[in-house]
């Protein structure tokens, strides 16, 4: 299953970034094959407004089924819910979160 984890660095040992819309990196992982991951710097982390909305749309366009993060704002939550993406609140490292 393809999931997204918000992270402070761009590898699997990174800590989960507790912010969704303004996280440092999005790590897209296939949980069946964790070594095959893609880390993308969040293009919206410095947006003056609507960072959550844009980040959520960005993640939704990647076709993920689940998002692991800290806090999701109301705008981002609405987009993720509409896209049918489950939001899971977590902390720790990316590796721990995806059980790799």
């Amino acid at each position: 299953m393809k999931v997204c984890v918000t992270a402070q660095e761009k590898d699997l040992n990174a800590q989960v970034d507790p912010r969704f819309g303004r996280c440092q990196y999005f790590i897209f992982v296939d949980t069946d094959n964790p070594e095959n991951f893609e880390a993308v710097e969040n293009p919206y982390k410095d947006a003056p407004g609507g960072a959550g909305v844009q980040s959520a749309q960005f993640v939704a366009n990647k076709g993920v089924k689940k998002v692991y993060t800290g806090n999701v704002g109301p705008g981002a939550r609405q987009v993720l819910e509409s896209a049918g993406i489950e939001v899971v609140t977590v902390s720790g490292t990316v590796k721990e979160v995806i059980g790799a």
Binding site: G49, G50, A51, V53, Q54, Q57, A60, G75, V79
Partner: peptide, 28 residues
Amino acid sequence: CAKICAYNALSVLKFGEKEGEILLFNHL
């Protein structure tokens, strides 16, 4: 529309060829 919005007030979700949803965030 979502791409050009300077205030990130729109989100476009595409579910299929002719299916989708446009979300407008009034406060943005």
